[in-house]
């Protein structure tokens, strides 16, 4: 420690400088030593798969035999002759936009209501969180049952009040909105996180704003939102990743709506109805592991990486800019 306190240039002899360098070097190694498990984990589980995926994307690879270099062949196919990748990309983009917005707004809305409760807070909070604990496959099967056009309780209720309920998961126009409802039902985790952020906003700020004549809407806009914006940013990024990787619910809902719970080993029911639930990760999986086109699947993964990186970068930049403007105001 004394070495760092000594002013530079006060001692002309080189020995202390060497000592300082040695101390710094030793400290660097200690830091690296402590970080080593994380670095190794990062390289093995993130770095290598990413580099390997990029490499495989330029090959014809079936996972059994050695990859064969084909240059940009997989990328050319993706943008020219393979028809379902466009459908899958559209479905996922739809989910990224609609599901992200709905999930964050819904979780914020529910958390805002719960944060104002004076009685039964614990019970309501638990009830709102419980669906998040349901396994995705089971929750989806239950949801498909609840929204069954013929005997599902939702359509029965709608019929009772004179409304002709839709076909929900059996209608290509309704299947993605139905999946969005399923996700909203299970968004308890995000709701709890936002609720914690809401409860953390200093009450004095609200009191001061009230004294200055600010109504609920202005208080929410000028106090609540800026205070919880980092959490909302997390919610948006988290929801985007969730949507980009949307898999289990889409596969199970498509198959269940087609009259079977069995999709393992065949792809005939995947995407049902009319490929409206065929998401990008599902098609990537089918190409890689069902059709043994791992090179093509790797190319799809690389594109997903680029798109998700760009999405996140733009979003973070925009939100940071908005937050700086708010702080300046």
């Amino acid at each position: 420690m004394t070495a760092t306190l000594r002013p530079t240039g006060t001692d002309p002899s080189p020995a202390p400088a060497t000592g300082l360098a040695r101390v710094r070097s030793r400290r660097r190694w200690v830091v690296l030593g402590f970080m080593a498990p994380a670095i190794v984990g990062f390289l093995v589980f993130f770095g290598y798969p990413l580099v390997a995926t990029v490499y495989f994307s330029f090959t014809k690879y079936d996972l059994i035999n050695a990859p064969v270099w084909i240059g940009f062949g997989n990328y050319v196919r993706m943008f020219t002759t393979e028809p379902l990748v466009g459908t899958a990309a559209y479905n996922t983009l739809w989910l990224v936009i609609v599901l992200t917005v709905c999930r964050v707004v819904f979780a914020l809305g529910v958390a805002s209501v719960i944060s104002r409760l004076r009685r039964g807070l614990g019970l309501i909070r638990t009830l709102c969180y419980l669906p998040a604990l349901a396994p995705p496959a089971a929750a989806t099967l239950v949801f498909v049952f609840v929204f069954n056009p013929e005997f599902g309780p939702v359509n029965r209720f709608l019929r009772a009040i004179g409304i002709d309920g839709g076909l929900w998961f059996n209608d290509p126009a309704m299947s993605k909105p139905s999946l969005t409802l399923l996700v909203l039902w299970g968004s308890g985790e995000l709701m709890i996180i936002i609720l914690a952020a809401l409860l953390d906003v200093p009450q004095e700020q609200y009191e001061s704003a009230s004294l200055d004549g600010a109504g609920p809407a202005r208080r929410f806009w000028h106090i609540t939102l800026p205070s919880i914006s980092p959490v909302l940013l997390f919610g948006v990024v988290n929801s985007m990743i969730f949507a980009l990787q949307f898999f289990t619910q889409a596969v199970v809902a498509g198959a269940a709506a087609a009259g079977t719970a069995d999709v393992a080993g065949n792809t005939k029911y995947i995407g049902n109805p009319q490929n409206s639930t065929l998401t990008y990760p599902v098609w990537l999986y089918v190409q890689g592991f069902r059709y043994s086109n791992m090179g093509y699947a790797a190319a799809m993964a690389v594109l997903l990486f680029i798109v998700s990186f760009a999405f996140t970068a733009i979003l973070v930049r925009q939100l940071r800019r908005a937050s700086h403007v708010e702080e300046a105001a």
Binding site: L284, G288, A297, A301, A313
Partner: peptide, 24 residues
């Protein structure tokens, strides 16, 4: 920090969705 966050997010998405490795 923001760059690290961005790269981590993108890596996470691609690594989880992508398929690398192999063997036989």
């Amino acid at each position: 920090s923001m760059r690290v966050l961005l790269v981590s997010v993108a890596l996470l998405v691609a690594s989880c969705s992508g398929a690398a490795g192999g063997g036989g």
